[in-house]
Simulated scan of single mutants.
Amino acid sequence: MVVRIMGEGQVRLAESHLTALDKLDDELLREMENGDGPGFRSTLQALLAKVRELGEPLPDDSLEPSQLILPSSDATLEEVRELLSDDGLIPG
């Protein structure tokens, strides 16, 4: 699957990694619901770091359709709320 991190680019990520990412996504959702700004920031950074760690960067000139779009590392809590579905940032 292709994942876009807004403002950074795309990575190819094996779907088998979604379980690990989903745990961070659930934590991020809880922190957002509780208005935990510092926790939100820390968990968003951890989620994006894990995607970068597990994914293989695509070339900058590659424009493949993204199956998943994640916010940039400096996104605010409000900006991320706008991206959320009922399942969080990562479906499943």
Rank of each mutant, 00 (worst) to 15 (best):
F40R: 04
G88E: 08
L84A: 07
R4T: 09
M6E: 15
E8G: 02
E79A: 14
E8V: 08
G9Y: 08
D36W: 10
G92L: 14
D61G: 01
V51I: 01
L24C: 07
V11E: 03
V3D: 05
L84N: 02
D61A: 13
E53W: 07
L21V: 08
R81E: 15
Q10F: 06
I5T: 03
M32L: 15
R52W: 04
H17K: 13
R12C: 09
P59G: 07
T43V: 13
L13A: 03
A46F: 04
L77Y: 01
E82T: 10
S85A: 13
R81N: 04
P65L: 08
M32C: 03
I90A: 01
P57E: 04
P91F: 10
D22H: 15
L47S: 02
L70N: 06
S42A: 15
R41M: 08
L29S: 11
P38T: 04
G39M: 02
L18M: 13
S42D: 12
A49E: 14
G9V: 05
L84Y: 05
R30Y: 03
E8W: 11
G37T: 14
G55R: 00
S42K: 15
Q67P: 00
L68Y: 08
G7I: 03
A75M: 14
D36H: 15
E33H: 09
V80A: 07
S73W: 02
S85M: 07
L47Q: 02
E53N: 05
K50Q: 13
I5D: 03
S72V: 01
D26V: 02
H17F: 11
L47I: 02
K50F: 01
D60W: 05
L44K: 11
G88H: 06
F40Q: 03
L83Y: 05
E33M: 11
A75C: 10
H17G: 00
Q45S: 13
E53G: 00
L13T: 04
Q45C: 01
E27V: 07
A75N: 13
G88Q: 10
D36Y: 13
E53S: 10
T43Y: 04
L83I: 05
E31P: 00
L83G: 09
S72P: 10
A49N: 10
P57H: 09
G37F: 12
L18Y: 06
T76F: 11
G37K: 14
L13K: 07
S73G: 08
S85Y: 09
S42T: 09
L68F: 03
G35V: 05
E27A: 10
R41F: 06
A49I: 01
I69W: 03
L77F: 03
L70P: 06
L70Y: 06
S72E: 13
G9T: 05
E82S: 12
L48V: 07
L21F: 07
L24I: 04
E53I: 01
S66P: 03
E33V: 08
D26G: 08
S85I: 10
I90K: 03
